[in-house]
Write a protein that binds this DNA or RNA. Structure first.
Lengths: 132, 132
DNA sequence: ACAATTGATACAATTATAGTATCATTTAGT
DNA sequence: ACTAAATGATACTATAATTGTATCAATTGT
């Protein structure tokens, strides 16, 4: 089971890389070489981050991506949310109507509790904090 | 993201159902009707539980499945382990060699911490406790 | 002998994840 | 104005995991 999928991972790497360097703006080509991430895939990811206002893009010849937000204000849960949807550990049970047993109650309570914990923990991490 | 997949879920339902009833032995046909789970799929699941010594089967005409263990001793983590493999939230990072940034350190620590918590919580639940 | 069961195992369908490709648009530099 | 290098938008493909189905053999109560 994965808590963090590949695209989230790549997004985090890219954001960390950009944050760390003073240069500010990077093209996909440059980033994909630096991070060792397939270019077209990374491109799609950065485009998504742009749409979500995490990055800001400039088009044209000397174009590229820069941070649109203070790294202190980009939370892990934001990025996970963007690529994996809102974290929901208990979805299988909520989605299922047929849950006639009481067990679901206790189990669901448990899952909700775990979910809250995970969200709290992940919500406490920012890109800035990942930079060390 | 799912913490519990369908087969685990079905397995839990079946185990709870069997534990709850005094009858003891049930055929797949009966169980699949009771639980509203596709028969061939449930069959595969029960066969797996049998191999793992959670259930015990008897073949032949009046055959079926009974519990092989005290419901107090069947833990959620056991069942998850059987159908989903050992829970490993941080696998994506461990599997990846290329993690040149320090961020992985903090992130991995976090994930390991979360993983421990989840395992502890799930490890505290048994089939018996799900019965109310 | 027969019918109802499980054992073993191979196969199929669906969904999610991971990644590619392409055409249109923008912009800097010449 | 032209060109090269970049992103925007979007459709497509590949791979893997999940969720099942199907089938033949062996067992057992009647």
């Amino acid at each position: 089971m994965k808590l963090i999928t590949r695209d989230t991972d790549y997004a985090l790497r890219a954001l960390c890389f950009i944050s760390r360097s003073s240069a500010g703006k990077f093209s996909v080509t440059k980033l994909s070489k630096e991070l060792g991430v397939p270019r077209p895939f990374l491109r799609k990811i950065l485009q998504t981050l742009n749409k979500q206002k995490i990055l800001e893009s400039t088009r044209g010849k000397a174009g590229g991506f820069i941070l649109a937000k203070d790294p202190k204000k980009i939370f892990l849960t934001d990025i996970i949310g963007i690529f994996q949807g809102r974290l929901k550990l208990n979805e299988c049970f909520l989605n299922r109507l047929i849950c006639p047993d009481q067990r679901t109650c206790l189990l669901r309570k448990m899952l909700v509790k775990i979910e809250r914990y995970v969200l709290k923990e992940l919500g406490s991490i920012t890109i800035a904090s990942l930079l060390k």
